[in-house]
């Protein structure tokens, strides 16, 4: 009896190692250009998507991308609708209480966007839009508790309302703000104001890949693969496609 148990255990572990090399569902968002956006044909594309695919190739996984709204993305991971999140999610102490993270795959600062000529002094009377449940939401609550904030389900919606004049400023990640808004037609007349902001307490230590707690193998595999993509030039190739500087950060 014991022998059979041991035998089956060995079999299971053996198979397990093989099963890892099979399929993996990855949650992505699709409303956060240039990191993640939905193309006209309805598929997802962007830096996050390319990184996710490159990591899967590197690790030999057969990956399926699952498009999930930001609000439900951590719950989706916890409920096993997917096995990892590649969605520009900042590695923060708060999130670490619920999920585990790989090493960062990029790190860029946050910035305010507002009408050209706006300054930090104007902030106290401004209505600021942020995406609900993001580090920027935490930052606004922690550092500017008196400022009136409006919560959006996605970053794109916040910029729509900024362009429409419903809000005075948007707090968000700088590259997504530049590519997703300032560089587009609707971003005309708007600009960054205030300094680039990166406070570890709120903004964490860069964007990482989230996995369920306790899934050490998967987490380490991702961290390792990120290092390899950096080393073999794949990362730089993807980086170049979207940005003219290295967004990996110091």
């Amino acid at each position: 009896m014991l022998k059979t148990t041991l035998l089956s255990l060995a079999l299971v572990t053996g198979l397990g190692a093989q099963a890892v090399a099979q399929s993996l569902n990855i949650c992505v968002e699709g409303a956060y250009p240039p990191f993640s956006f939905t193309t006209e044909s309805g598929s997802v594309a962007g830096f996050d998507i390319d990184i996710a695919n490159a990591l899967c190739d590197q690790l030999g996984y057969d990956c399926t991308l699952v498009k999930t709204g930001w609000d439900g993305i951590i719950p989706a991971l916890l409920e096993r609708k997917c096995d990892a999140i590649v969605a520009s999610m900042a590695i923060t102490p708060e999130r670490k209480q619920v999920v585990d993270f790989s090493m960062k795959y990029y790190n860029t600062p946050a910035r305010f966007v507002g009408r050209e000529g706006m300054t930090m002094d104007d902030l106290k009377d401004a209505v600021v839009g942020v995406q609900r449940g993001t580090v920027h939401h935490d930052y606004m609550r922690g550092e500017h508790p008196r400022v009136d904030i409006k919560l959006y389900g996605s970053q794109d919606e916040a910029f729509l309302d900024l362009a429409a004049g419903r809000i005075d400023a948007v707090m968000g990640e700088s590259i997504a703000s530049a590519t997703g808004f300032l560089d587009t037609d609707s971003g005309e007349g708007f600009a960054f104001f205030g300094p680039p902001i990166s406070i570890p307490k709120y903004h964490g230590i860069g964007a990482g890949i989230a996995v369920r707690q306790g899934e050490e193998d998967l987490r380490n595999a991702f961290s390792h693969a990120i290092g390899e993509l950096r080393a073999n030039g794949t990362y730089q190739k993807i980086n170049q496609k979207y940005f003219d500087f290295d967004i990996f950060g110091g």
Binding site: I74, L78, V99, L151
Partner: peptide, 23 residues
């Protein structure tokens, strides 16, 4: 709640988002 109003559902979503809760 999809247009930034913190109604009953908006409050529920805000709570979920803040503490990364599912339900």
């Amino acid at each position: 709640s999809v247009i930034t109003l913190q109604d009953i559902l908006g409050a529920g979503r805000a709570l979920n988002a803040r503490y990364y809760l599912a339900y």
